[in-house]
Design a protein around this nucleic acid. Structure first.
Length: 266
DNA sequence: AATGGGACCTGCGCGC
DNA sequence: TGCGCGCAGGTCCCAT
């Protein structure tokens, strides 16, 4: 569930808490989340490294280290980074200078931690589409041109545009008044323009709110994100549309639940 | 190229 | 009360 706004929020939280700290030791309570390299090398490669810079690409957090390596974190659905942590309930705990622990939690073990020599060479990152905030209306329209696929799965396709997941795709399409089953090529120029504006607006507002806390997502401090209160369609199936009172529908698209207003979204 | 389905996981809420 | 089931969704992988 953490999407671009949640990961960006965590990135900024980490900049205010762990940036500049040294990793004194790593406790691995469940090695399943460490995808690369093996747990022993992972822990050894992090020891005594200083966190020099923190970046986000799509939904991936990147912690650049003083030893030239980078720790990448993909939270997938239930990953959390908590500081200061308790070191007990975590999958992995990083003991930091300053006598506190950064805890990595992940109920479902989908998340992925990696220690890489060059994060830019990670296949997933190399194949990513552009960041939404780097696009202009013109470049967005160019991306869309010739795409016959349905607009909602396309927005969630990380090789098309980076960082949008199921929740924000639904919210963006509601605000752009576009039915999620429309094909990209069927969109009129004005619809493409509005869609782009709403992508930027929704993501921007969500970042300002610290993201959406639905399931497990929390900020680094453990605080919840406030954007959930602003959701117009996500999780509102069966309830009246906030704009027209029509019942919000939920359908399956590409195996994912998709909420929309059948009257507002044409 | 587009689409669907299953896999990975675990906890929760539902119906019975 | 307890049990089994479906569902939640980011990404990969396979089949059509």
């Amino acid at each position: 569930m953490p999407e671009l706004p949640e990961v960006e929020t965590i990135k900024r939280d980490l900049e205010g808490t762990v940036l500049g700290r040294k990793i004194l030791g790593v406790a691995i309570n469940n090695p399943a989340v460490i995808r690369q390299p093996g747990p022993t090398q992972f822990a050894a490669g992090l020891r005594n490294a200083v966190i020099k810079r923190i970046l986000r690409r799509a939904k991936v957090l990147i912690l650049e280290l003083s030893n030239g390596k980078a720790l990448t974190v993909h939270l997938k659905m239930t990953g959390q980074l908590v500081y200061p942590g308790n070191g007990k309930t975590s999958r992995v705990s990083f003991r930091l200078s300053g006598n506190n622990t950064l805890d990595f939690n992940d109920q479902r073990l989908f998340a992925e931690l990696r220690l890489l020599d060059d994060w830019r060479e990670l296949k997933f990152i190399k194949e990513l589409g552009p960041e939404p905030f780097d696009l202009t209306i013109r470049s967005f329209k160019k991306l869309l041109s010739g795409r016959k696929t349905r607009i909602k799965p396309l927005l969630m396709d990380q090789t098309f545009i980076a960082g949008i997941g199921n929740l924000y795709a639904a919210e963006i399409l509601f605000r752009a008044k576009i039915n999620p089953e429309r094909s990209a090529v069927s969109l009129a120029e004005a619809e493409k323009t509005l869609l782009f504006k709403e992508i930027v607006a929704v993501l921007d507002e969500a970042i300002k709110c610290g993201g959406s806390s639905i399931d497990d997502y929390v900020r680094v401090s453990g605080k919840r994100g406030d954007y959930s209160r602003k959701h117009k369609v996500y999780g509102r199936q069966g309830k009246p549309c906030m704009a027209c009172k029509t019942v919000i529908k939920k359908i399956a698209m590409g195996g994912r639940g998709t909420c929309f207003c059948p009257r507002c979204q044409k």
